[in-house]
């Protein structure tokens, strides 16, 4: 460290300048510049190495892998097939169903999750004695992981020991084996697990809205409903927008819930895209096909995010 420390010092030029006009003692300007540049690259290096090896290289290699068919038995060479594999995989029923399932899952989780988080945040945004306890409870699910939530709910759904069947929610076949109910059930787990995070997001958004605006509106005779729709929602729109975008990205990354609760079934009804990639990689050992799916996963997520930014952000009210 000391060599570098002595190298590109902030101080050496300045201190000499203060003492007097000992200009010649200052290292040549270009050398100082070179040291600063060298230091900068040195500081960026660790991050760039990680990014290069574990993000950019594997990302780009997907496109390449997609051109090669993985042999049915390990040891045989990969076969170059051009765009054939892209075409085959992207037009397959399995893929299209998987995209449909993922979009459906997003529609089930994002709007409901945000509405619940926002509702709780508005309710907890009151000056009441003991409100802190409620806030802690409403944010409590951030302390759970996807695995924790899935194992808890998996047991609650269990047809023998579960509480949900006892409460009368007991379809045949059991919820998680039921083609109609499995996906909504996983969505419910997800909404609960992310509720704490959504609540925290919405609460901090609400806290950023100055009380005076509400006061002024109240003085002008605006009721609670008017204030909610005309003040809270517009001023909170950047936070809501953020939650929608992140929620969409999360939905396309859904994995743990599926692995722990349904393994993509029944009848592939919960075979979301990330789980499909995993299965193709792990069970089929088919790197080529998995790579095509990964490229699709990336493209869809990216497009979705850009579309949301394009069309939603226009309706977002920034600034004051």
């Amino acid at each position: 460290m000391s060599t570098i420390d002595g190298g590109a010092t902030l101080g050496e030029t300045r201190s000499s300048a203060v003492v007097g006009v000992e200009e010649p003692k200052r290292p040549p300007r270009s050398r100082r510049r070179m040291r600063e540049i060298g230091l900068a690259y040195l500081l960026l290096l660790p991050s760039l190495v990680i990014f290069g090896v574990f993000i950019f290289y594997p990302f780009l290699r997907n496109f390449y892998l997609g051109f090669y068919r993985t042999p049915p038995f390990p040891g045989l060479p990969m076969r170059y097939v051009g765009f054939d594999q892209y075409r085959d995989v992207l037009t397959s029923t399995d893929f299209l169903d998987s995209v449909k399932t993922t979009v459906l899952f997003m529609i089930m989780t994002v709007p409901a999750g945000i509405a619940l988080g926002l509702g709780l945040a508005v309710l907890a945004h009151q000056r009441l004695k003991g409100i802190g306890v409620y806030r802690t409870i409403f944010s409590s699910t951030v302390a759970t992981s996807v695995a924790v939530a899935s194992v808890i709910f998996g047991t609650l759904f269990n047809p023998v020991v579960g509480l949900l069947p006892w409460l009368g929610v007991n379809p045949r076949p059991p919820i998680l084996d039921n083609p109609q109910w499995a996906l909504p059930a996983v969505a419910l787990v997800t909404i609960w697990q992310t509720l704490g995070l959504t609540f925290i997001l919405m609460s901090s958004g609400l806290q950023a809205i100055p009380d005076e605006i509400h006061e002024a509106a109240r003085v002008d005779g605006a009721g609670a409903g008017t204030r909610f729709w005309k003040i809270t929602i517009p001023l909170l729109s950047p936070t809501i927008f953020f939650a929608v975008v992140i929620g969409g990205i999360f939905a396309f990354q859904t994995f743990g819930q599926i692995d722990l609760l349904t393994q993509g079934g029944p009848l592939k009804k919960t075979n979301v895209l990330t789980y499909f990639v995993y299965r193709t990689l792990r069970t089929e050992n088919n790197d080529g096909k998995a790579a095509v799916l990964a490229v699709a996963l990336f493209t869809i997520t990216m497009t979705l995010t850009l579309v949301q930014m394009r069309f939603l952000e226009r309706r977002v009210h920034y600034g004051r």
């Binding site: 991050s47 760039l48 990014f51 090896v53 574990f54 993000i55 950019f56 290289y57 594997p58 990302f59 290699r61 997907n62 892998l65 990205i249 396309f252 990354q253 994995f255 990330t274 990639v277 995993y278 990689l281 790197d287 998995a290 790579a291 990964a294 490229v295 996963l297 990336f298 997520t301 990216m302 995010t305």
Partner: peptide
């Protein structure tokens, strides 16, 4: 921009080669 670009690649997309690596 390179640093920011990393935010746009979901980790799930990189698992195939990362597992090999």
């Amino acid at each position: 921009v390179v640093f920011l670009a990393t935010l746009m690649v979901p980790f799930e997309v990189t698992i195939i080669t990362n597992l090999t690596t």
